[in-house]
């Protein structure tokens, strides 16, 4: 697989600690034409393996199934390894891997496994959120993930990439293969639905005592 992807320089192998760093300097993903030798595994391990857990967690949220998530992640690493000789060290390995991951997830969904899109429809969610859920005493990680999992799949993907993985809109658009305006729209609608789901619990948890401006969300 040959992936052309705008990347930001300077965050290539930086791992997860600095994923929001360097939001400018968009450049084209370079292809090393001269290097036709097979890269060694330890280079691939050093560049790609640090991102394994984040790829798996994203796949898990998208598919809702651990076996399918692992299948997509394994396929991602296999595809990445097979085309690693075209990947230039020092560029955005994380964005490249996420692009391959979403390619694999879409392939799973569209062609082979035909697993249903997880998450209820937007209209369904909005209709059923008219009555807020009982206020929880705390806002647990489990409640947040449940709310996230209920989002329509496209909204959830945008939210995972931008809010969780901290990709810039432009990178998220490249990864998902959609225009940047589509990412912004899905992100906005996804956040709105998420806020609506978590509003009651969030109040009780004390993120804020009141939620001005959220009543109509």
């Amino acid at each position: 697989m040959h992936v052309l992807l705008p990347v930001r320089t300077g965050i290539a192998s930086a791992g997860i600690a600095s994923k929001r760093a360097g939001r400018s300097n968009v450049v084209s993903f370079p292809v090393s034409k001269a290097d036709t030798t097979r890269p060694r595994r330890h280079e691939f391990d050093a560049d790609a393996m640090p991102h394994l857990n984040h790829l798996y967690r994203t796949a898990m949220r998208v598919t809702g199934d651990s076996a399918r998530a692992e299948d997509a992640v394994q396929e991602t690493f296999l595809q990445a390894w097979k085309s690693f000789d075209r990947f230039e060290s020092g560029t955005n390995c994380r964005a490249w891997l996420f692009k391959i991951l979403f390619h694999c997830l879409n392939h799973q969904r569209r062609k082979w496994f035909r697993f249903p899109l997880l998450g209820a429809g937007e209209e369904y969610l909005e209709a059923n959120l008219a009555s807020p859920e009982p206020v929880a005493s705390t806002l647990t990680d489990g409640e947040i993930l449940q709310a996230l999992d209920r989002l329509p799949a496209d909204f959830k993907a945008a939210l995972l990439l931008v809010d969780v993985e901290e990709f810039a809109y432009k990178d998220a658009a490249e990864i998902l293969g959609v225009p940047i305006g589509t990412v912004m729209s899905r992100l906005s609608r996804g956040r709105k639905l998420l806020r609506a789901q978590l509003e009651g619990a969030a109040r009780a948890y004390g993120i804020l005592k009141d939620l001005p401006g959220e009543a109509g969300a």
């Binding site: 984040h54 967690r57 898990m60 949220r61 806002l139 990680d141 489990g142 947040i144 993930l145 996230l148 939210l159 995972l160 809010d163 969780v164 901290e166 956040r191 998420l194 806020r195 978590l198 969030a202 993120i207 804020l208 009141d210 939620l211 001005p212 401006g213 959220e214």
Partner: peptide, 20 residues
């Protein structure tokens, strides 16, 4: 406050997802 809430919620979502 609206912005603070949204930022706090985003942080909670990120923390929950990262902890899976």
């Amino acid at each position: 406050e609206t912005l603070a809430f949204r930022q706090a919620l985003r942080q909670k979502v990120r923390s929950a997802a990262d902890g899976a």
